[in-house]
Structure formats: structure tokens, C-alpha cells
Design a binder for these strands. Structure first.
Length: 927
RNA sequence: GGGCCCAUAGCUCAGUGGUAGAGUGCCUCCUUUGCAAGGAGGAUGCCCAGGGUUCGAAUCCCUGUGGGUCCA
């Protein structure tokens, strides 16, 4: 079954639309103009709005956004504030927000959670990294953009249980959506006859549905998606991805209107960038000293208009079209290139700076993982573009220009981060440059070019772009051939083998699924440590332990970085020790050593000391996180946390190491909050209200499911949290930060202890110090100074010993107590036993050689060891001698011909071996 | 989260199992002296930590720590 009939809209009929087929591409489309030939979308048609804007008035970005949002507000839509560009703040399957619908996935689109409003309108900042190479060059690609949209969330009315989903009934569907689109165009003064609605079914992420592309004057200005089907092997519709789909109970209007395109359309500038970033472009041109004559200006303008009319979808097309365009505007290709390329860089810089402002403004910290890595990549690319085109304004200032325009409040932090990153990049380049120069020298010496293998290594392990290698190598006159498939070669190095970790098989998942959700009493009263319950089921495990399911429990199951409670479950006959508690699908399982019996009443008793310690550490984690945010900046966000009974750790995103000074400040502030002894409160608001009031910073520890979420208030800090907490901050007792460390780039770990654990931790540190003080026999305050003195003295002593050994060796060699002296083919040889360490043996042997004699020294200090040293021209290979001698003591040895060492374990054979040494020497000489 | 690279003198780095090196900077002296510089000599080191292999480890293996980098 096809989707053709899905497009037979009443609205089209009422308005007298015609369904036509494009003469170029064959696509079906709807239009008021019955004589129309093509669908209107490049390459079937050309842009017709350059120098001839499609709307009545010119709009700036802000004006166009406002026009759109207020239009939909006037048509009964609620205006929603945009979400962060860091989509991983509310979902864990993507890094960046790439469309407005991302804001409502997965919980709203699946019907689990109601939308914040219905219908709604929004202008959502988005970042798409996949077009990064095209930005600036094609005239219309941007990495940062705003997707203006209106959404309506519908649920079918003919389903069995209307309460099954978080929204009910139909708000509106296809006809109204197209009508709204048409009216919006009309309100801006567009020529409605020029609009085409192309049938273009949509598939993505397991969903599908009919969709319409809206084309006006050659530009795709909107996409209207009617998400209504899900993948289903039995489904009646086969879509273009080859899979089958069937209708869903929920169906959603998902529209996307590109703010930049609409703004561009209203201005008719040659490129989208000029419509969106007029101020920034003017600033950058001035800063880079780009100044065009009127004639040049008109060449650039014409070239841009021409390339806009071409089907230019990526950089390769630009290159291919350049000759053609140069020809048409009447200049040489290289002239055109020289005029246009600096502008392309400036366009890209403007766009990238806005991208960075979004990312950093939303609290992304550059790092080598996740969104942090994407931010770093964009930043480095932008820096390269600036250097390339000769923009010398500091990058942090450029990003700040955009951050200011976007009304971010954390502009100082953003500038700080950019400065830190630029400096870091400079260091990487320094390091890389040195490395490349060295390699270039090496290959220049060999008269070869730098091989691909080295290029890959330089890029993959050291972050040096191949073109940079080529540049530096050229200075040294060395060739570099960069293969076309360079980046796929890099990818190859990373291999494919993704380890799929299978979830642990739950042998009784079916039985668990049938049990009711366990009533979790610890949310009602976090301080109570005993309770009564009925045993609903008992599962005997293979290891002889039991999993007990109760109707209700006070036991906290492991979760949110808080370990499970321990304690006991007892009947009159049995007391079962609870050693672990887990929750799955709302059912709590208590791991015990005894079976209290299914159907029995049990009394539960929590190990109160353990729980209290965990509660203190959990509340303390919130306090420390809040204090860190106050001290280090608003970007501070939890990257992970784990509580224990004797300490806890909090990982936060931050762009530089936390200094000792900052640690002190955080500790002070944290303890002030403790001393304030304010109430720690919990509430269960609707998630939409919670998000509206507190933003997504709620989800520090992960994104909880469900409509109602639990919020914990500690001082001014609010977090969605499922853990157990003390009643007042004062109950935490005290907070002692034990240390900070960088666990990965952009993530700092703060380890701390709370309550009695803080005291114990302090005592441990003090014990260590006082023990050290005792050993050094000084007071604790003097330990650092004394340790330094001792260390220095120890080093000096080492040097003195070294010198003395050498002197001793010389005296020995010269003295009469030298060992047996024999003649080996005219060269005197000294054979001697000297029970000393290797250093001394070596020194002695050297001293003997100085006198022109062969030295054979043996030591029984540590097994049997030999050193053999031979003066020049003695005709004896020291390595052979040592090899022979060492063999006799069960070992081996070797070394250069004039100085060898070796040994073996059999010390008893040492003297015999030394006795044989003269013979060995003669043998080796004759060999 | 995964892959790769690196850790040796204050700095930049050589050193692939056998006596720890170079350049630069530093110190002293000499020459010259307005400065820059030139010459001679000298001092530098827990070779990141711990374990293993070996007669012997800066070097090989394992673990950890710290840093860098690429990818999702």
C-alpha cells in the first residue's frame, strides 16, 4: 500500500490545488498554478529570490523569529522556550539537538509524558555537525541554526484505553498544518502561486509517515512531517527504506521551518550568511583587512548569485562549478578564487562562533569525550580558519560577540574556556610542529617523502592535520602525498569489533513481571529503620542465596550512586540477613541468606549506622556539587557520583584542574551550608512543571522516567534524585574534601567525606603525618622542610658514594693487593675476586684497563657476577670471555667487545671459574 | 565509552637488553667589550610509580599514575 492517498487533503481541494508531476525528477507535488512544470526544488529549478526577496519586508533573524512565533501564538499555539543544544541533558541517545522534535523524544512522542503544551510553537537552536565542510562554501549550509516549528500531539480516539497515553484525542492533523503554513506565507506577503508542496514520505529512527516539503522560489523553506507509523514487520506500508510500517496509536505533527532560510528569503542576499551575520561579517572583513573595490564587489555578488542558482550540495560541487562561474562573470578561475575564498572563511567563522556560543553557553565543557569533543573540534577548526584568513582578533572575543547576541549570562566563563582551549591548541601545535619537523628531517635525509603511515600516526595520535604536515614538510623540501581516502584509513585503525555485552539473564524475569510494584516506604519516611511486610515471593538462587520480594519495603535498592541498604528480615523462626537490594521494573528484590517463607509476615530492620552514613554522604554530594558550582561557575555539572559509607565522590565537568585554593573555598562554602542547618525537602511535581521552573540542570544524576519526578531541595540547589537524604543540612555534620583529581579531560573528581567519616578521614591523614614526623623525629609542622632536606642529602650522599667507589677502584687497581696477574699473548691480565656490587666492579675494571691491562673481576655479592674489560688491541673479545665464565656459574652475559658483564646463580662455582679465567682468555684470543 | 601515542638534565628530545647522552639554558673562567657574541671548563638525573622476565631493565611484559590525541 502506498501513501498516495494520504496526500489527498480537503484543504488542497478547497483551495483549488493541482496535483502535478515534476517534469525533471518525477516527484508529485501540489500547487495553485496548474501550468507549473517542475517541483520547484533545485536542481529541477533555480533560486529566484536572490536580489528579489520573496516577502514584503526585510526581516532580521530576531524579527523573523518573532514573526513566526507570534503568528502561531495568534493561532492558538503556546510559545515554548527553547531547549539546550546539548540534547544529552535530557536524553542519552544523542549528543546534540538537531531538530525541534528532539525536545520531545523519547517520552512525549511515545505518549508516556504529556508535552509542555499542545499544540505548541518553538524556535529551537540546533547544531548539525555533518555539514561542517560545506559551511561558508555553498552559500546556504550552516552548522548552527534555529528550527522554528509548531507541534501537535494526537492520540487516536478509537483505542481501548484512552488514558493509556499522556494526551488524548486529536488536536489537528494534515489539513490544518498545511493551512497554517499557507497562511504564514500569506501573512508575510509571499506569492502563493509560487509555492509547491512536494510529497516526500519521511522515515527515521523507527518511525515514518507522510511528509511534505514546502518550496518557495527555489528554496526549501519548511518540512511538514506527519509522524504516524512505526516499524512493524507485519505492517501494511512499505517505505523507502525497505522496511514495513504500521500505524501507531499516537500521531504527531512535526514541522520544521529554518529560521535562517526564512530570513534569507526576506532579504534576498546572495548567501544566507550575509542575511544572518551582517555585523559579524563586517567586523571580520575589517579585522582581516579585506577591502573590495566596487568592481570586485560586483564580481563577488554575481558569483554568489550564480552559485546559488546551481545545484551545489557540497564542497566538491563548489570546486567543480568554479571554472564555469568565473567564465560567466568574466574573470579567471584563480582571480575568482582569491576573491571568494577569504569570504568563505569569514562566513564559516561567523557560523562556527555562533555554534560555539550555543555549546559553551549551554555549559558544554571541551574535552576528549562526548559533546566536549565536538566543541573542541569546532573551536580548533575556527581557530585555523581565523589564522588562515588573517583574523587576529582573539577567538574568545569573537565567540563572545555571538554569546552576547544570544543573551547568555555566563559570558565570562565562556571567554575563559575559549582562552584555555586556544592555549591548549597552541601547545598541541607546538608539539606537533616539532614532531613533524623532526620527521621531515629524517625523510629528507633519506630522500623519501613522508609515508601515509606516518601521516595517520600524526593525525590519530597527535592531532596534526595532514595539510599542516604538508606545509611544514614543504619548508624542509620534503614531499607529502595525502591519499584521498585518508580519513577512512584513520577510521580503519579504529577497527569495527564493537563488544556487545549481553544483559545478565534473569532466570525468573517472567515471575517478577507478574508481581505488583513494591511499595517504597523510604520515600514516605527516610528516617525510619524498621517496618513490617508480607513476603510475596521467594526465588532461590543458584549460589544458595534467596531473592525476597515483599509487598512494601524500607530497604533502599542500589541506585543513583547510592549503595543498597543492609539489614535483616525476620519472622518468629527465621532471621535472614539482607546483603543486597536491587530494583527492576518497580519490583524490589532483597538478597538474603535465609528463606523466611512465602506468605509470611516479616519484620524488616535496616542497618541504621550504614544507612545514616550513606544518607549523609548523599546529601553532602548535593551540597558539594552546589558549592562547586558557586565557586567554579555555572557550567559545573555532575558527570557521575558514587557514595560509600566512609567517603563519596563527585565527578564534575570543568575545563581546568581545581586548584588547592578553590578546594578550600568549596569546602568552606559546603560547611557553611551544613552549619546553616536548613531543611532538606522533597517534592513530587509533574516533570513539565519541574523542568519549566528549574530547567534541565535538575537531571544531574541522570534522567528519571515517569510523569511525576522526585525533587530534592538542599539550600538553593534542586535536583531530581531518587536517593535517601538527611532531614536538615546540619545532620551531615561536617564535610571534608579529601582530594581532587582529573579522571579524564574535562572531568574533575572531588572526593570527600561527611559526618563521622570526615573526622575519621582527617584522623587518618593526621596519623600518617604524625607517623612521618615521628620517623623523622621532628614536629608535624617541620615534616615538609625536613623531608626536603633529607631528600637533598640522600641525593648528595649517592653522589659522594659514587665518587668514593671510583677512587677506591683506582687505588685497588694501582695497589699491590691486585689479584693474580697473567700474560695473555703479550697483554697482562688481572684476574681478581672482589665481592662488591656491579658499579664497583665496573669502576675497578675501568681503572685496570686504564693501565693497559685486561681486567677479569668476579664478585660473589649477589650470585656470581663478572666484569671483563679489555684495552684496545689486546685481541680478546670481552663478550666471549664473560659468556664462557658466566656459563660456568649457570648464567649468561655479554656486551661490547671491550667491556662485558654477566653472571649466574651458582656462587659456589665462582672461584673455579676465576681459576680457569687465564685459560679462557688464551682460548678466546686464539679463536 | 573505545583505540592509539607519550613520560629520560630546568626546557626540547636522542638512547630497543650490557658503564645514561645531545642541543639549549645554567655556573666558572678566558677573549672581546658599547652591546651582541666567541673560546675553555663545570654541575646537573629515584630514566613517572609498582610488580614481572633476565646474570643484567631507562630499554621487554603486566598493572597503575599523569599527559596528549583520534573516533562514537
Amino acid at each position: 500500500m502506498s501513501l498516495e492517498e494520504e496526500y489527498q487533503l480537503q484543504y488542497f481541494e478547497d483551495e483549488g490545488f493541482h496535483r502535478l508531476e515534476c517534469s525533471e525528477c518525477g516527484a508529485n507535488f501540489w500547487t495553485r498554478d496548474g501550468d507549473r512544470q517542475t517541483c520547484g526544488e533545485p536542481p529541477c529549478a533555480e533560486y529566484s529570490f536572490i536580489d528579489d526577496p520573496g516577502f514584503d519586508e526585510e526581516h532580521s533573524l530576531a524579527e523573523m523569529r518573532e514573526a513566526f512565533l507570534s503568528f502561531f501564538e495568534d493561532h492558538d499555539h503556546e510559545r515554548i522556550d527553547p531547549y539546550p543544544v546539548a540534547a544529552n541533558r535530557w536524553r542519552d541517545d544523542v549528543l546534540l539537538t538537531q531538530a525541534s522534535i528532539y525536545d520531545f523524544q523519547p517520552l512525549v512522542t511515545s505518549g508516556e509524558t504529556p508535552p509542555p503544551a499542545n499544540p505548541l510553537t518553538i524556535s529551537q537552536p540546533c547544531i548539525r555537525m555533518q555539514d561542517i565542510d560545506n559551511v561558508g562554501k555553498t552559500g546556504r549550509h550552516t552548522m548552527a541554526f534555529e528550527m522554528m516549528a509548531h507541534h501537535a500531539f494526537n492520540a487516536r480516539e478509537d483505542i481501548e484505553d484512552p488514558d493509556q497515553y499522556a494526551y488524548e484525542g486529536e488536536v489537528y492533523w494534515k489539513d490544518e498544518t498545511v493551512e497554517l503554513c499557507d497562511e504564514l506565507f500569506d501573512s508575510l506577503g509571499a506569492d502563493l502561486d509560487e509555492i509547491t508542496y512536494i510529497e516526500d514520505p519521511w522515515v527515521g529512527g523507527g518511525n515514518a509517515g507522510p511528509a511534505i516539503e514546502v518550496i518557495y522560489k527555489g528554496a526549501e523553506l519548511a518540512t511538514l512531517v506527519f509522524m504516524s507509523m512505526e516499524q512493524d514487520p507485519e505492517g501494511e506500508y512499505e517505505m523507502k527504506d525497505g522496511n514495513r510500517y504500521s500505524p501507531m496509536d499516537t500521531y504527531i505533527v512535526d514541522t520544521g521551518y529554518g529560521l535562517e532560510r526564512w530570513t534569507w528569503m526576506s532579504q534576498g542576499t546572495p548567501t544566507v550568511y550575509e542575511a544572518v551575520y551582517p555585523d559579524m561579517i563586517a567586523f571580520l572583513k575589517d579585522n582581516a583587512g579585506i577591502d573590495h573595490t566596487d568592481e570586485e564587489e560586483s564580481i563577488i555578488h554575481d558569483a554568489a548569485r550564480l552559485s546559488g542558482n546551481l545545484d551545489i550540495d557540497d564542497v566538491d560541487d563548489v570546486e567543480a562549478a568554479r571554472d564555469d562561474i568565473a567564465d560567466q562573470v568574466g574573470v579567471s578561475t584563480s582571480e575568482l578564487r582569491d576573491l571568494v575564498e577569504p569570504l568563505e572563511d569569514i562566513y564559516a567563522i561567523s557560523d562556527h562562533c555562533r555554534t560555539l556560543a550555543y555549546m559553551l553557553g549551554d555549559g558544554i565543557v571541551p574535552s576528549n569525550v562526548g559533546t566536549g569533543y565536538l566543541a573542541r573540534m569546532v573551536l580548533r577548526r575556527t581557530k585555523r580558519l581565523c589564522d588562515n584568513v588573517g583574523v587576529d582578533a582573539p577567538l574568545d572575543e569573537l565567540v563572545d560577540m555571538q554569546a552576547e547576541r544570544l543573551d547568555y549570562e555566563n559570558r565570562d566563563t565562556i571567554r575563559d574556556i575559549v582562552r584555555t582551549e586556544v592555549e591548549r591548541y597552541r601547545e598541541t601545535l607546538d608539539r606537533g610542529g616539532r614532531r613533524v619537523r623532526q620527521l621531515a628531517d629524517e625523510y629528507a635525509g633519506k630522500g623519501e617523502s613522508i609515508p601515509t603511515k606516518e601521516l595517520i600516526e600524526l593525525y590519530d595520535s597527535h592531532g596534526i592535520q595532514p595539510d599542516m604536515v604538508a606545509e611544514i614538510a614543504a619548508e624542509k623540501g620534503v614531499d607529502v602525498a595525502v591519499p584521498d581516502d585518508f580519513y577512512s584509513l584513520v577510521a580503519e585503525r579504529h577497527g569495527g569489533g564493537e563488544g556487545v555485552e549481553a544483559d545478565e539473564d534473569d532466570p525468573y524475569a517472567d515471575r517478577i513481571a507478574e508481581l505488583p510494584d513494591t511499595d517504597r516506604l523510604y520515600y514516605e519516611d527516610q528516617t525510619r529503620m524498621d517496618f513490617e511486610a508480607v513476603v510475596l515471593d521467594v526465588f532461590e538462587r543458584e549460589d544458595g542465596e534467596y531473592d525476597i520480594v515483599l509487598d512494601q519495603t524500607m530497604f533502599y535498592p542500589e541506585g543513583g550512586g547510592q549503595p543498597a541498604d543492609h539489614g535483616t528480615l525476620s519472622t518468629d523462626d527465621v532471621t535472614a540477613e539482607v546483603r543486597d537490594v536491587q530494583i527492576s521494573d518497580g519490583v524490589v528484590r532483597h538478597r538474603t541468606d535465609e528463606d523466611p517463607g512465602k506468605g509470611e509476615f516479616v519484620r524488616g530492620q535496616i542497618d541504621a549506622t550504614r544507612r545514616h552514613r550513606l544518607m549523609r554522604h548523599h546529601t553532602a554530594t548535593h551540597i558539594v556539587g552546589y558549592a562547586a558550582r558557586r565557586v567554579l561557575g555555572d557550567h559545573i555539572r555532575q558527570a557521575g557520583a558514587q557514595k560509600h559509607t566512609d567517603s563519596a565522590r563527585l565527578d564534575v565537568r570543568h575545563y581546568e584542574p581545581i586548584s588547592r585554593e578553590e578546594v578550600r573555598e568549596i569546602e568552606h562554602l559546603a560547611n557553611e551550608i551544613v552549619m546553616d542547618n536548613s531543611t532538606v525537602s522533597q517534592e513530587w511535581p509533574h516533570r513539565n512543571e519541574a523542568e519549566a521552573e528549574h530547567g534541565f540542570d535538575l537531571y544531574q544524576g541522570g534522567i528519571p522516567p515517569g510523569e511525576q519526578i522526585r525533587l530534592i531541595h538542599v539550600d538553593e540547589d534542586v535536583q531530581a534524585c531518587g536517593g535517601t537524604h538527611v532531614a536538615r543540612t546540619g545532620d551531615v555534620g561536617a564535610i571534608k574534601i579529601l582530594g581532587t583529581e582529573r579522571i579524564q579531560d574535562g572531568v574533575e573528581r572531588i572526593t570527600f567525606a561527611a559526618g563521622d567519616a570526615a573526622i575519621e578521614a582527617t584522623q587518618r591523614t593526621e596519623d600518617a603525618l604524625s607517623e612521618a614526623a615521628e620517623i623523622l623525629d621532628v614536629s608535624p609542622q617541620d615534616v615538609p622542610e625536613t623531608a626536603e632536606r633529607f631528600f637533598t642529602e640522600w641525593k648528595e650522599r649517592g653522589k659522594t658514594i659514587e665518587e668514593l667507589k671510583e677512587e677506591l677502584a683506582e687505588v685497588r687497581a694501582a695497589g699491590a693487593d691486585a689479584g693474580e696477574e697473567v700474560d695473555v699473548g703479550g697483554t697482562p691480565a688481572v684476574v681478581q675476586r672482589l665481592d662488591a656490587d656491579m658499579d664497583e666492579l665496573r669502576a675497578t675494571a675501568n681503572a685496570i684497563v686504564e693501565e693497559g691491562k685486561i681486567a677479569v673481576i668476579g664478585s660473589g655479592r649477589d650470585g656470581a657476577q663478572f666484569v671483563v674489560a679489555v684495552p684496545d688491541d689486546a685481541g680478546v673479545d670481552a663478550g666471549d670471555v664473560v659468556g664462557e665464565l658466566a656459563g660456568r656459574v649457570g648464567g649468561g652475559g655479554g656486551g661490547p667487545p671491550d667491556f662485558a658483564q654477566g653472571g649466574g646463580p651458582n656462587e659456589a662455582e665462582l672461584d673455579d671459574a676465576l681459576d680457569d679465567a687465564p685459560d679462557v682468555l688464551r682460548q678466546v684470543r686464539n679463536a
